[in-house]
């Protein structure tokens, strides 16, 4: 049915279509930029409010939540990378988690046919931006920590594995970004499909789906942040016994 609807093109469901700005010959997806900015403003507002209110006495619920995430991230970083090796991984992972979480949850309000604000993570531009930045940092960290030895892992365990290892390394940012993108895009497509039903009945499955979408949004944010830490860990000294430390 979905395929049939999609095949109709001009029907109710459209995938990957964005209102666009054309500036200086560059094509920019306007809705993505706007929703990303909204998400960024929300995250930064929360973050700065939290920083201003941060107290060593009785913490607010927000601070407790933030501290819980921070603690989890620190533990993960400590076990995978070592906080001393890459101290910036902690704020990076925290930022990724909260930013992706808000970006995913921004689509909480459903319109009749689509969201008021489309989740920016349903656009590959944001997910690629994040994953490319992360992977550049990962590679830089690997080289900084291991030096020349970092490239040694490309010929492990055999030299014949070199092409596969290179592909694996290059695929990392792609999978990282497309996983997130696909999940969130699927959520929006689902809303569009459900919107094809008469409004009298579509509210129930849409509501149910939105609740599940919230869970997916949190899960994907978690996965993105966790994989980031793991990639850092692999780059900083994944091969045990090589004396990276």
């Amino acid at each position: 049915m979905i395929a049939h609807v999609l095949a109709e093109g001009g029907g109710g469901v459209s995938v990957g279509e964005h209102p666009q700005w054309h500036i200086l010959g560059l094509t920019i997806n306007a809705d993505t930029v706007i929703s990303t900015s909204i998400a960024a403003v929300i995250v930064l507002a929360f973050g700065l409010y939290l920083a201003a209110k941060a107290t060593s006495k009785v913490p607010s619920t927000l601070q407790i939540a933030f501290e819980a995430v921070t603690e989890q991230v620190e533990r993960q970083v400590e076990t995978n990378v070592g906080i001393r090796t890459a101290p910036f991984v902690v704020p990076l992972a925290i930022s990724l988690f909260f930013f992706i979480l808000i970006a995913n949850w921004i689509s909480i309000l459903p319109h009749a046919t689509e969201e008021y604000v489309r989740p920016p993570t349903a656009d590959v531009n944001l997910t690629f931006a994040m994953s490319v930045f992360v992977m550049i940092m990962v590679w830089a960290t690997g080289i900084r920590v291991q030096g020349k030895h970092y490239f040694g892992h490309f010929v492990q365990p055999y030299k014949a594995m070199l092409p596969l290892n290179i592909i694996e390394e290059l695929v990392k940012p792609v999978t990282l970004s497309l996983r997130l993108f696909g999940n969130i895009l699927a959520g929006t497509v689902m809303v569009s499909v459900l919107a094809l039903m008469p409004a009298a009945v579509s509210w129930l499955p849409t509501s149910a789906w939105k609740l599940f979408d919230l869970f997916i949004g949190m899960l994907q944010a978690l996965i993105f942040a966790l994989l980031t830490i793991i990639y850092f860990g692999m780059a900083a000294g994944g091969q045990e016994g090589e004396g990276a430390h």
Partner: peptide, 15 residues
């Protein structure tokens, strides 16, 4: 829609 366009840079900046 799987090919990023110039939005990439704006998103990167915001991120």
């Amino acid at each position: 829609f799987l090919i990023p366009n110039a939005t990439f840079f704006v998103e990167l900046l915001i991120f």
